[in-house]
Every structure is written in C-alpha cells, then in structure tokens.
C-alpha cells in the first residue's frame, strides 16, 4: 500500500532527502508545480516566443477571469456539489450590465445590479438544491439554461456595445504595468485560498462534502452551507462576467460558453474530488495554469483552434479518471 510506504518514510527510515521529497510530492500543488515547470521547459524548447514577458501576460490575462470562476467552483466541488451554470451566470451578468448602461443607468449602479443578478441565480440554485431537493447536476443544468435564456431575451442575439470609457477602464486598465484583471484574479485567488483553508464558515463545507449525514449530526446546518456555496460561486461568476464585458467594451450572447468545463477541469486537475471533501483554490489555479500553458503551446505551435476544445475535454476526462482510479485503489 502506498500509504504504508509513506508512513514508513515519515518515521524516518531511508535518506532524509527522500523523506522530504515524499512529503512534498504528497501535496498536490507541489506536484503540479513541478509538472508546470516541465511543460514550460518543453514549450520553451519548442518555440522562442513562449518565454517572453508579452506571452506570459497574454496567458495570465486569458485565464484571469476563469480563475475567479474556478475559486467558486472549487468551493462547490468541496461541498460535494457541482455547478454547471457558471458560464451562463457569467454571461447573464455581463449582458445585464451592458444593457443597463445602455438604457441610462449610472455605471456603478449597473455594476451593482449585474453582480446582484449573479447572486440571485446562485440563491435560486441553492434553494432548488436545499428546499426542493433536486440534485446539483440537474438544478444547475436548469439554471444554466434559464440564465442563458435570459441572455437571449435581453439581446435578441445582438451585440451590446457603446459602453462609456469610465466602465471600460475597469477591465482594460493597468496598475504598475500589470492588467487590472490579473490583479483582480490574484486578489480573489489568494483570498479564496486563505479563507478556504482557514475560515470557520468555509471549513464546514469540507465536512458537508466529506459526509453529509455525519456533518448534520455534528451540528452543521447543511442547507445553509450549501445555499452559501452556490451563492458565492454565482456571485464570483457574475462579477467576472461584468469585468469581461468591461474588458471587451461589449457583450455578446454566447459569452462564457464552456466556462464550466474549464473551471471543473482546473479544479479536478488541482486535486478537488468530485465526491466532495477535498480541494484547494491554489490547486485549481495551478490546474488552470496548466490548461492555459497547453492552450498557449498549441497556439504557438500552430495547432488548429478546433483541436483545442477536444484536447481540453480529453484532459478533463483524464484528470477525473486519475482521480477515480487512485481513490479506488486507496479504498480497497
């Protein structure tokens, strides 16, 4: 058994460096980081454009808003749930903010309402799951369709543009030469990671995901935790959608399509368990970075854009298969 070997290593038999290495490799993030370095190394060899500041900025800007969504998705997966509606909620808030500004709302109130719309979807999902008792997959499949429907009703399929500079600055500006979106993602990821490790409220999420019945008997209010989880996830998705609209100075109805796939893949690669109770924000971020690097490598090496979707989905299936297989072996 692998665990026995690790325990023996912990007890101090064998050389010290091996003990240290085993311990480091037990942390999913460390293993991922090593893998990231490896991929970066290969990409650096394959193309001279990879290791440039410009390219790094492109990669990070490209995944910044996905990272914000992935923070919420990590929490959802830890709770033992799943949220397929993140992409649609992202779009819904992005469209609502554009529409409200277009009809004359002040920028700040349009942003506020749009973010609250995101929160609203999360509360609806949460109530469907806790009060009605529909499972998360179906509940969020439902809100996913509904939120996307609202997008089409508002836009009738047209592009919403003509947004003022004051709004565009949010998503397009830079501080110290670094794009705002990267700053935002950094703040959300680091805060999210810290809180998921340390916050008393979020600690409950692990117990609910680990064993719902035991959590209830341990005095945890399961319904409140779940409602909170879906609310946070939708709130973050909605906020990310608003920034996306600002960044592109326009909103289109298909925006955010496929974001759930990216987010779930990133979380699972980063060590979140689809059966709940496990996962870290930092891990999910590294997962996202890995996906970003691979996408970037494909682009730099002139691989057709049509292949990218296929490859990303295949990576998700591989990551899940890995998760399931290692779990099965441990449980035997």
């Amino acid at each position: 058994m692998a665990t026995e070997e690790m325990d023996r290593a912990e007890e101090g038999k064998g050389p010290v460096w091996r003990t240290v290495l085993t311990r480091v490799m037990r942390v999913r993030e460390a293993a991922l980081m090593l893998f990231l370095l490896l991929v970066s190394f290969v990409l650096t060899l394959s193309t001279p454009y990879f290791l440039t500041l410009q390219n790094m900025r492109v990669i990070l800007t490209g995944l910044a808003l996905d990272a914000v969504i992935a923070v919420g998705m990590t929490i959802t997966l830890v709770s033992g749930g799943i949220d397929l509606s993140v992409g649609s909620v992202f779009a819904c808030s992005g469209i609502v903010v554009a529409k409200l500004i277009n009809v004359g709302f002040p920028v700040w109130s349009a942003v506020l309402v749009a973010v609250l719309v995101g929160l609203g979807w999360g509360l609806l999902t949460g109530l469907l799951i806790t009060k009605v008792g529909i499972n998360p997959l179906i509940s969020t499949l439902g809100t996913m369709g509904m939120a996307r429907g609202v997008v089409y009703v508002i836009t009738s399929g047209r592009v919403l543009a003509g947004l003022p500079d004051s709004f565009q600055r949010v998503g397009q500006g830079r501080i110290l030469g670094v794009p705002n979106v990267i700053w935002m993602a950094a703040v959300v990821v680091l805060t999210g990671d810290f809180l998921l490790r340390r916050s008393r409220m979020l600690r409950q999420v692990f117990y609910v995901g680990g064993n719902e019945r035991a959590a209830r008997l341990s005095g945890i209010n399961i319904n409140r935790v779940k409602l909170g989880v879906y609310a946070i996830t939708a709130l973050l998705s909605g906020a990310a959608g608003v920034v996306e609209t600002s960044r592109f100075a326009s909103a289109i109805s298909p925006m955010g399509t496929g974001k759930e796939l990216t987010a779930i893949s990133a979380c699972v690669i980063g060590g979140a368990s689809l059966s709940g109770g496990e996962g870290t924000v930092l891990g999910a971020f590294f997962g996202l970075l890995l996906l970003g690097l691979i996408r970037d490598g494909l682009i730099l090496n002139d691989v057709s854009v049509y292949w990218q979707q296929l490859i990303q989905a295949a990576i998700l299936v591989l990551a899940v298969a890995f998760d399931v297989l290692t779990r099965r072996r441990r449980n035997v």
């Binding site: 008393r200 692990f206 117990y207 680990g210 064993n211 008997l217």
Partner: peptide, 30 residues
C-alpha cells in the same frame, strides 16, 4: 456512515463537532 469523515484526517474528525472552539474570530486556529 454517521460518525466519521473517512477521507479526512484524524484531526479534522476530532474537531468536527464544535468548530467554534478552535477559531479565533472568523478564522480557524491551526
């Protein structure tokens, strides 16, 4: 089924029934 969080650590299990006692304000105290 009802007592343990099998996939979680001994530590996480022991503190699970009153998290408040191991927190300082809103944060857990490792």
């Amino acid at each position: 089924e009802e007592g343990l969080f099998l996939d979680m650590t001994v530590q996480a299990n022991i503190i699970s029934s009153h998290l408040d006692a191991f927190a300082t304000g809103p944060l857990m105290d490792p």
